[in-house]
Design a protein around this nucleic acid. Structure first.
Length: 219
DNA sequence: CTCTCGATGCGCT
DNA sequence: GCGCATCGAGAGA
């Protein structure tokens, strides 16, 4: 078994749904280094999670749940450990994992992974892209792993073909934070450091030291 | 390398 | 209509 990284011998564990039923910021941090797995036609596509963002709370104006429950964001209000996949900009999908107890709308956006297994199929899913561009963004990784609207609402279990395995947690000093990318809202939404990523990792969506558009100084 | 801008579907005001 | 938790092509430096 495990022809992936070749190193791990011990059996891997799928994160149980209870893992997600906790404070969103804790879950977000602890997801770094874990292995996102997608089964396609019997093939394992996977990668280490290297960048996430937390969307939590009633007063988080950057959250899709900020203005109450709708058909689109209903999954965020549902049970933890399920996938919230939304469609945006007319062509892109993004993957979230729902956190907190049912009824509390919160989720963690998976923004980037570093490929481990299934590189060949990922390249087919994103033709013309160099390996470094396969999964270094929320919509890119969805394309590479063939995550679309059919995944919305599914539980993160082996049975669904979309789940997360316990893998390696990065050292604390390897974890960096910043404001979230591309969000709108009030001052708080724009500045609160709810983006977590692995420092200096080549698959993080924005290079460190580089700044974003008209945003403000923060990290 | 950096920045700007258009693509393109759909949920919401 | 408007605007979006984005991406990539193209232009310029």
């Amino acid at each position: 078994m495990d022809r992936g990284d070749g190193h791990q011998v011990a059996q891997r564990t799928v994160l149980p749904l209870e893992f997600y039923a906790r404070d969103t910021l804790i879950v977000a941090r602890e997801l770094l280094g874990q292995r996102l797995v997608r089964m396609i036609e019997g093939v394992r596509l996977s990668g280490h999670i290297v960048e996430v963002e937390a969307y939590q709370g009633e007063d988080d104006l950057a959250s899709h749940a900020a203005r109450g429950k709708t058909l689109r964001n209903a999954v965020m209000f549902g049970p933890p450990g399920h996938a919230y996949v939304y469609f945006t900009y007319g062509m892109h999908y993004c993957l979230n994992v729902v956190t907190e107890p049912e009824g509390t709308p919160a989720a963690v956006l998976i923004r980037a992974i570093a490929p481990i297994e299934g590189l060949e199929m990922m390249r087919q899913n994103r033709p013309g892209q160099p390996d470094e561009e396969l999964t270094n963004g929320p919509a890119k990784l969805c394309q590479a792993l063939r995550i679309d609207r059919t995944c919305n609402g599914v539980p993160l279990t082996e049975a669904s073909g979309l789940f997360i395995e316990r893998d390696q947690m990065p050292a604390i000093e390897q974890i960096a934070t910043s404001p979230r990318i591309g969000v709108r809202g009030d001052e708080r939404a724009l500045t609160i450091p709810w983006r977590f990523f692995i420092r200096d990792h080549p698959y993080v969506s924005l290079k460190e030291g580089r700044r974003r558009k008209p945003t403000m100084d923060s990290w």
